[in-house]
Design a protein around this nucleic acid. Sequence first.
RNA 1: GCCCCCUUAGCUCAGUAGGAUAGAGCACAGGUUUCCUAAACCUGGUGCCGCAGGUUCGAUCCCUGCAGGGGGCACCA
Length: 553
Amino acid sequence: MEKELNKILENTLHIFNLTHIPIEIEIPRDESYGDLSTPIAMRLAKTLKKPPKIIAEEIKKNIYENYPHIFEKIEVAGQGFVNFKFKEEFLLEELIKIIANHRDYLNFDIGKGKKVLLEFVSANPTGPLHLGHGRGAAVGMALCNIMEAGGYKVFKEYYINDAGVQIKKLGHSVYARYRQKLCDERDYPFPEDGYRGDYIEEIVLNNELSSLLKEYNLCKDTFEEISSLVNNLSCQLMLKDIKKDLADMNVHFDTWKSEKELYDKGMVQEAIEHLRDKGLIYEKDSALWFKSTVYGDDKDRVVLKSNGEYTYFASDIAYHKYKLDRGFEEIIDIWGADHHGYIPRISSALQALGLHSENFNVLLIQMVTLLRDGKPVQMSKRAGEFITLREIIDEIGPDTTKFLFLFRRHDTPLEIDIEKAKEQSADNPVYYVQYAHARISSIIEKAENLGVKLDIQKIKPSNFRLNEDELRIVKKILSYPMLFKSTVKTREPHRIAFYLYELAGLFHPYYHKYRVITEDRDITLSRLALCICAKIIFKEGLTLLGVSAPDKM
RNA sequence: GCCCCCUUAGCUCAGUAGGAUAGAGCACAGGUUUCCUAAACCUGGUGCCGCAGGUUCGAUCCCUGCAGGGGGCACCA
């Protein structure tokens, strides 16, 4: 609907010898202002040196004359808005088009095949995923689906931080627990900064670890002797759990990139050399520094410490270089909001490597707090007391978990009330939306059983009989493209979730007020068409969010 | 001290890349089931959009300052 208006406005402005004018179209707040509206006359007032109302009148007159079959009413209002009300017939034609070819309606070519690397979750494999990771996973997966529907080519990658001291701590913790549990050495010292969570014990008691270490005598060999083996195995087992959590959330990655591999293949050194060749690396206090200030960072950053070790930032540079080397044109990283301070330095590195800053985007994911009985559940990672993503998925199910993660802008803190999430009531938006889909499915099924079937080839707008409530739903459905485009542009998946919630909020009352299957054949077919369309949208939206769209509940 | 984010109805939050008279849900009160799924629906009313300036035809939205809340500052990861 907005696409047609856009074209019409473009043609109209062309008549006035105006080309390449950005056309804004919006849905007016108040229904009485029409279906769509444009403030274009106010925009043009300056260039044309005419009052906006005069311009608006000219636009109105012109469109009225040339497109009498599309508009019911065109009005000039306010300071110069042009408000459009479509003819019912036009709206219904649009509806039929959706049913006839919904892929065409739901997919867009905003990205024009642009290759995007989307990196998300990337949690250190030193413990189970927590809620924040889950939120990042949900947002990442949804964003990927959305951008692909928007014509981008998106690759999803998980970066495994398996090279640093954290992995050593993990291995050391596992080793110490092993001595304590399986070697009868209850007093074996546990590393002070080790990981104390129960999951360490689970790794130790896991038969897989024991069997993999059969050839070694862990009770005799010192940690130093077998550390690399234990570190590695612990990391592998941890990753296995992480992969399972993500798989159960239906989150999948195209590639899992290991940090350790970057070192083993000399890519870290290579990346630093590359920057050195560009004159962006210098030595100070026997350390190597990257001139990130050249690209707007507050201060230069160390890449090679004076003790000869690379910083975490060094491997990050190498990793992001690797992203570019594979030909990706846009880099999107999804991070916890506590990492926001890293944006300038990574952005600097990418710019130094030749990427324009607008092609690097970071989505920051804010904290998730869990409420039980209305009170926040205290979490402390050091003491090993925290609620894992796994526990929440098991308790409230993956669909609810994902939807709740996506029912808020990603950069604002989120509270999840676990009692409410389990309630499966109106407090729980995911059920509200899914239920609308299930209800529609049930209606369509019933109609089929009664032998009522919509023949899309034969149906014409003149067959339709839709009332005011129904037209409101039709318009909401027809506004999907606008919503979708804004979601792609802003990279804010929550907009889809809110849209679906609003659509469900129109459908449920409608369902309650009217019956779809009636004695009147035309009315039945009309309403059925509306239902089929709504179902297409619910299904699409939920799928984009990674949430299931059940036919029965 | 410096940087980032947040501040909208009693509560939780939207607000369509600057538009018209700022919206939902919850909570609270009352009601609805012979009917395609009651996990639903209907009827009730609320706002110094944190404060103060600025930009302009127009600001909840952009800029500056201030206040309150959260997060971050490293040759940690």
